Amino acid sequence: MQGQSPKPALPCRNLRPDIEPRVGALTDDLPKRRCESLRVAIGNEVRNWRLKRGWRLEELARAAGLSMGAVSRIENGTVSTSLTTLRALSWALGVPISSLLRRSEQQYEAVFKKAGQPIGLRNCPTPAETLGDIEVLSSGIKVEPYLVRLIEQEAHFPTFRHSGMKFLYMLEGAIRYSHGEDHYDLGPGDSLLFEASVLHGPRKLLRGPALYLSIISARP
């Protein structure tokens, strides 16, 4: 109506005030996470090349003109590496700088197995079906998943000892599994996580046939 001042506009309200800060936080943190991944990838390459040469940490440090602490921090991915330092490390190791950056630039692929798809058999003492080796390059960890079937009791099941960690998840049946001096009875839904450098393996088939998932995680 004429002669009346317009009503003030209603103030805008953010119906979800929690959304914007979260999105901003994730966006701001993305470069930091990528930088950390790059440091870890370079560190793993430096360590891998050093081990291929059969060198101790101090030997690489001396050859590159760096302190042991500096090389240790680089290999552990806790510090960013300058181009000058990368050049010194590559010269000491006898490899081009690109070799130290290779894993940071590599694209990773997933390993997908469709239900019912044939699974390759791994030549090992127990009937184990490999689900595919996955090397997580950004962290230098190799993951080996297996499906293990135990159909009948054997006089002596094989035992294992290797580097890394192992995770077991029982799917069917029941077994007794040993880890060092300890024994564990596993049924469907039970799991076991342990250091694989300790002697371990199935000891007894309690209820067969048994099927369990075995995942080995270790540095290659």
Rank of each mutant, 00 (worst) to 15 (best):
L150V: 11
I151G: 03
I151Q: 11
I151A: 10
I151S: 10
E152V: 09
E152Q: 10
E152T: 13
E152D: 12
Q153A: 05
Q153T: 01
E154I: 09
E154K: 15
E154P: 06
E154R: 15
E154M: 11
H156Y: 01
H156P: 00
H156K: 01
F157L: 06
F157N: 04
P158R: 04
T159S: 04
T159N: 00
F160H: 03
F160L: 03
F160C: 02
R161M: 09
R161V: 05
R161W: 02
H162G: 07
H162V: 08
H162K: 11
G164E: 02
M165K: 15
M165N: 13
M165E: 13
K166F: 00
K166P: 00
K166E: 03
K166A: 01
F167E: 08
Y169H: 08
Y169C: 07
M170R: 13
L171E: 02
L171D: 00
L171S: 00
E172V: 06
G173Q: 08
G173S: 06
G173Y: 05
G173C: 03
G173N: 06
G173R: 05
A174C: 08
I175L: 02
I175V: 07
R176F: 01
R176C: 05
R176S: 02
R176L: 03
Y177Q: 13
Y177D: 12
Y177I: 08
S178Q: 09
H179L: 05
G180Q: 09
G180D: 05
G180H: 04
G180K: 13
D182Y: 13
D182A: 15
D182R: 15
D182Q: 15
D182F: 13
Y184G: 07
Y184M: 11
Y184V: 09
Y184C: 10
Y184I: 10
Y184F: 14
D185V: 12
D185T: 08
D185M: 01
D185E: 09
L186D: 00
L186S: 01
G187D: 04
G187I: 06
G187F: 08
P188I: 11
P188V: 10
G189Q: 07
D190E: 11
D190M: 14
D190N: 15
D190K: 15
D190H: 15
S191G: 14
S191K: 10
S191A: 09
S191N: 13
S191M: 15
S191Y: 14
